[in-house]
């Protein structure tokens, strides 16, 4: 059962403003989705271990810790994408 206060908490954790009308809609929808996905509790199978490296499973992929490009090569393009910028810096409101 998902209540309005749960939705308010989730919206806060997700940093999303939602309207009061939407809170009710989301509570109903997210409640019914959680109700559906609850069925995974019924699944049974062989021990739920992760597939090991030997079996072709997951492993960390590293790259060499060296300079892959020149300093500043992409800075202009990337800063250009920022909505607020000043003198080659991304601009944000005062934090402290």
């Amino acid at each position: 059962m998902i209540e309005i206060k749960d939705i308010e908490k989730l919206a806060e954790l997700s940093r999303i403003n939602i309207s009061n009308e939407e809170k009710e809609v989301f509570a109903g929808e997210i409640g019914s989705i959680l109700n559906y996905v609850d069925q995974i509790k019924l699944a049974t199978g062989e021990a739920g271990r992760a597939i090991s490296l030997e079996e072709g499973g997951f492993k960390n992929v590293f790259r060499k810790d060296d300079n892959c490009h020149d300093s500043g090569e992409f800075s202009k393009d990337l800063i250009e994408s920022a909505p607020e910028k000043e003198n080659g810096y991304i601009k944000v409101k005062k934090i402290l």
Binding site: L10, A11, L13, I18, E29, I30
Partner: peptide, 14 residues
């Protein structure tokens, strides 16, 4: 974010 995106972000957060 549209409604579906917000719904999935909140569901994922949950």
């Amino acid at each position: 974010f549209g409604r579906e995106a917000r719904r999935r972000i909140m569901l994922g957060t949950y």
